[in-house]
Amino acid sequence: MNEIRAITTFVRAAALGSLRRAAVDQGISPQAASQAVMQLEKELGVRLFHRTTRKLSLTEEGQRLFDSVQPALSILSSALGDARRSKEEVDGLLRVSAPRAFGIPVLWPYFEEFQRLYPHVRLEVQFDDHFTDLVTERADVGFRGGPPPSGGSIARRLVPIQLIVCASPAYIERNGAPRGIDDLAQHRCTGYRRANTGKLAQWQFQIGDEIVYRDVPPIVCVNDTEMETQAVLSGLGVGQLGSFNAAPHIRSGRLVPLLTQHVTEYGALYIYYGHRTEQPLRVRTFIDFMIERMADNRAFFLDAAELRAARAPQRGAGGGRARRGLVPGA
């Protein structure tokens, strides 16, 4: 027996004074309505209605049941209506998880734009450098940099993450630019300590078909990609930055890309989520919004032509002019 259907039919029959009217109200046949009420009476072991050919009235037990379940059914009906409307209206709570590194430089401007377009969505953003399990953390949508996320989520690649060696024009003017990977040992360099592991990130270089990893001792080490970018912009040293941080400053002339023949990709930025058919409209709208604005968005990486153009000799280039720690970068 479908107890909710049976109780709903019982309540509508009591309110309308007729099983036939209750059947029409529920979109079922009169026989099905009558059967549902009889099954409910059998299950409870009490008679709920006095029945005559012309009249339907509640027994004492039926009246007590009606008084008890009607408020609960109203709450249930309201809750079901809210759930249905979530598939039709862009409103309600939207939980998003993302790494801190992509917060301000990449994602936040789009979050602001989405909020302006859909002001009835309550956006709750958790910046976390650990991978977020959407089910465990009760998040609707996640972002991740590096390899694609696993664990049953649907992942969509947005933009590549390039690792680009950069320096400011002022640093190159004072200290020259490294001509090769080995020249980095003669320069002041910045470093990034991974927030989730505490380990100093190795520098990565594309050499032929292989990716080579090097330990580059830093003169300045931080655990925040924006702060490392600022250190390089300030001329404190040479840094290997993510393209999402570096590309806008390279295009504006505030940073100079170096060793571009060795640029490598550290995976990509992904958006991931559960099955779309189960998502409220606000979640599906947000996913479509972010994909439309970010998929292959060249604002966050350098294309092949830009990398080739950057290989031209830089003013003051020279690998041996700066010794680590001897020439100030400020």
Rank of each mutant, 00 (worst) to 15 (best):
Arg188His: 08
Ala305Leu: 13
Val141Glu: 02
Pro109Arg: 05
Lys87Glu: 10
Ala268Gly: 06
Arg21Trp: 00
Arg174Met: 07
Thr190Leu: 10
Leu80Met: 12
Pro148Lys: 09
Ile250Pro: 04
Gln202Val: 11
Arg293His: 15
Thr132Phe: 02
Gly142Met: 08
Ala304Arg: 14
Ser153Trp: 02
Leu236Val: 03
Glu226Gly: 15
Asp133Asn: 14
Arg157Phe: 07
Glu306Phe: 04
Leu302Trp: 05
Arg122Gln: 11
Tyr171Ile: 06
Lys42Ser: 15
Ala268Pro: 06
Val327His: 07
Gly253Leu: 06
Glu228Leu: 13
His275Leu: 12
Leu158His: 00
Gln39Lys: 12
Glu112Asn: 00
Ile4Leu: 11
Ser86Asn: 11
Ser243Gln: 04
Pro178His: 07
Leu19Asn: 05
Gly253Ser: 03
Thr53Phe: 11
Arg298Trp: 02
Ala268Trp: 09
Ala247Asp: 04
Tyr273Thr: 06
Gln39Ser: 13
Pro218Trp: 01
Leu200Ala: 07
Val106Lys: 04
Phe300Met: 09
Ala177Glu: 05
Gly274Phe: 02
Ala83His: 09
Asp140Trp: 06
Leu48Ser: 08
Arg95Ser: 07
Glu43Cys: 06
Leu94Arg: 01
Phe205Lys: 08
Asp133Leu: 04
Gly316Leu: 00
Ser18Asp: 01
Ser234Ala: 15
Ile291Asn: 05
Leu94Phe: 07
His50Val: 15
Arg276Tyr: 04
Pro169Ser: 11
His120Ala: 08
Gly274Gln: 11
Leu40Gln: 03
Phe111Gly: 02
Asp288Ser: 11
His262Arg: 03
Gln31Tyr: 14
Leu236His: 09
Arg174Ser: 08
Asn2Ala: 11
Gly146Ile: 06
Gly191Val: 00
Ala177Phe: 05
Glu278Asp: 15
Arg276Ala: 15
Arg308Ser: 15
Val283Gln: 11
Pro147Leu: 02
